[in-house]
Every structure is written in structure tokens, then in C-alpha cells.
Computed example of a mutant assay.
Amino acid sequence: MTQNINTLFGGEDQYLDEVIILSYRGGTGTGGAHPNGTYSLPQGYSWTDFERVEFIFGDSLRSFQPMLLLSDEIQAKPTTWLMVTGLNTSGSNWTLEWKAISNNQFTCRGVSSSYQTVIVKGYIKRYSSRNMSKIISVNGGSAITTGRRYEIDIATELGTDYVGRDLIVTAEIYNDGGVGGVIGWGTTGWIFASGGGGYGVQAGVINDKIVIATGLVALCERDAHHTGHVFGALAAPLTGNLCRVKVWKIDQYISNDGVAPNIGLGINQTYTDVTSQRSFNSTYVNATDSPISATVALRYGAGTYAYMYATVDGVRFIVAADAHATADTRMVANLIIPAGSAYMLESTLPLVQWVELR
């Protein structure tokens, strides 16, 4: 039996996908954090696309602080929202202001050069099958550097359900276009240059950790045809960039021909008497990954019109009927319920037994 992958993994989950609005620039002054000015969202985005927007500002000592703009604020004023923050530093007040001036532009304004905008991130709601698990920011969301090993504790970051499971992990870095190339997230490939060192970023799982290793020379080599990275021609290698890891949790394997093994009716299933847990005219759900069957018996007497109707995912049909009993009689009906389906059996007569193969 061929299974649709989304059905196999049980439907859709939601997660927030990170979009870099202003790439990381640390420090203050010329060449440091983002100066006052007007900025645009990445092409194709508008403010109402985001569930939240995170503005991170800091000082020359790399003391970074976040401010959050949430979806209800964005929806209320999609083109005119305003965020202002102010602190007292060395006895003097200062202010940072971010303001929308259209559905895809905003301004940054500060009255002090001590604190300026370091990075702006947006988060968009996405949907995926349940095995698409997480997107994790490496190094706490700060840039990673060369010749390093970063570890992510699986239980802490992903939850105990991921410990000991088969995980697929992929590391990506963000190219902000500072040395050319295509702006965005992408993989770097990996090469080792004789007499030099490694170029690239790789992620893997070992025991209870996700490990990210970076090349000694650079995170990404300049020429795309050397490593197969996705950014195109770069003027120089990338050596300090944001990094994220995408994680897939394998819930069930599928064979090469797309057929999911061991999930058919009667495979790894047993008959279970569920009479005490079932009643007529109540709705139940087959929450397993396989179809199940129900065998149901009722009792009726002479001269009684006996029937059973079934409703599966809103479709109602008759499964048994009899109007010719001459004595106390039993009626039995069988029903197959697809994986994930809601089902109900209807009758006004007494239930005798309900057994399911599941």
C-alpha cells in the first residue's frame, strides 16, 4: 500500500522560520552597527507576513538586548507601527526608535551612537509534516567563526522525544552579501586545501549532541565550483556568519518504492476487546498510522427491526439490517477504518461486544 508522506507522518505542524531582515553588524560607529536610516524588507516580504519581529541592539562592549514586535501589533498597524526603547547610561538618557513607513520599509533612529541596531530578524509561520522538527540557531544566534566546534544538547534544545532517535541534520550559514554572492541561507560544502586547512561548515549527531564543526581557514570558500556552495561567486571567503541547523526526526522509514512497510491491516496488530470503552452513537478516532477493523455485535428480539449505521469521516452508510427475527438474535457487522479517520456506529439496540483489530 502506497502512503502519502504527510499522511504517514500524521499531518502538519507549525514552526517559525527565521528571516534575516538586517544582517548582523556588531560594534558602533563607522563599520559597526547599522546607522540611522531607512531600510527595506527582503524582496517579496511585507510586515504582515511575520508572526514576530526581533530587533537586537547593542553597545561597543557587545552588550546586546532584544525588543519584540508581535503579530497583533503588526496587524493593528501594518504600515505605521512604532517601537521606542530608552535606557539611562552614565547618567544620560538615550533613545532608539524603529518605525514602519510602508508595508515593506522602516526607519532606525537613535539619539546616541553608543547603542545602535545590530541585527533584525523576522519569524514567519510555516507548516510541515511532523517529522520536520526544528530550526536551531547556533551559538545563541551570534556569528560563528573558523576552526571551532559547537555543540547543541538534544534534550535541552529539542526535548527528550528526540533523544536516541534517528535525526537528519543540515548546517546552513547566512551570506549577507558583504563580499558579493547570493544573499540568503545555504549550505557551504567542505574541502581541505593541502598545506592550508579546511573550508566549510558541517553538522552531525553524536550520542546526545548535535555537533557543528567549522573549517580552520574559512566557513565558505570563495569559488562555488570548489565546494559546491550555493552563494555563487564571492569576492573573499566567508569567515564569520550566522549559522542555523535544520533537524528532521525520522518517525518511520519508507522503502525505496515509496511503500511504507509494516503498516497494513493485520500487520503487527492484535484483536482487542474494547466493549467497555465503546458505545453506539459516539465518535472515535483511529489515531494509529494503520487502518484498523471493528467487529461489533448487538442483540434484538422477535419482530424487531434491527440496524447498524456507520459514519466514517462524515460519510454515513448502513452496515447491517434485519427485520425478520423470530427469537432473541445477534447481529454482527464489520467495518474497516482508515488511519487517522473518525468513526461512529449507530443503533438503538443493546451492544453485546465490540472488538477491534489494531
Rank of each mutant, 00 (worst) to 15 (best):
G204Q: 14
V230C: 05
A342Q: 03
R299I: 10
A339Y: 00
T28E: 10
Y300W: 13
D153E: 11
I119V: 07
N36K: 14
G26E: 10
W94N: 15
C220S: 10
S341R: 00
M1D: 06
I337C: 01
T188L: 13
A302V: 13
S341C: 00
V84G: 06
E172K: 05
M1E: 07
R52H: 13
S133L: 11
C243K: 12
M308A: 04
F231M: 13
Y343R: 02
G27H: 14
T107L: 09
R299G: 12
E157M: 06
R62I: 15
R130P: 00
S276W: 10
V111G: 13
L8E: 00
I183C: 01
N104Q: 09
Y150I: 13
S282I: 11
E73I: 14
S112G: 09
G177C: 02
A320M: 05
V217M: 05
A218G: 15
T188I: 03
G314V: 11
Y300I: 08
G32K: 06
R109M: 11
A294I: 12
L298V: 04
Q202S: 04
S46W: 00
G197M: 03
N93P: 11
A302D: 13
S102E: 12
S133D: 08
L61S: 08
D322N: 12
T187P: 02
T275P: 14
I183G: 01
D273Y: 15
Y24A: 13
T38E: 15
V245Q: 04
K209C: 04
V118Y: 04
D166H: 01
V53S: 07
Y127W: 03
I336F: 01
R130E: 02
G122H: 09
V230P: 12
L22A: 06
T28V: 06
A233D: 13
N241S: 10
R165N: 08
G195H: 04
Y309S: 02
R244S: 11
A333P: 09
T275K: 09
H226S: 13
N93V: 08
S40Q: 03
Q269P: 02
Y39F: 15
D161L: 01
H229C: 06
V182P: 00
I56W: 14
Y127V: 00
T326Y: 07
G232I: 11
Y115I: 12
V315L: 04
L69G: 11
Q75C: 05
L70W: 10
V217R: 14
A171V: 04
G196P: 00
S63I: 15
P291R: 10
F57I: 08
L82G: 05
G147H: 07
T117Q: 10
S92C: 02
L335D: 02
L70S: 07
A235V: 10
G29Y: 14
T85P: 03
G181Q: 09
L265C: 02
V19D: 10
H229A: 12
S113W: 12
A321F: 05
D328P: 02
I21F: 09
F57H: 06
H226Y: 06
R330Y: 14
Y127I: 03
M308T: 11
L82T: 09
S279D: 09
D17G: 10
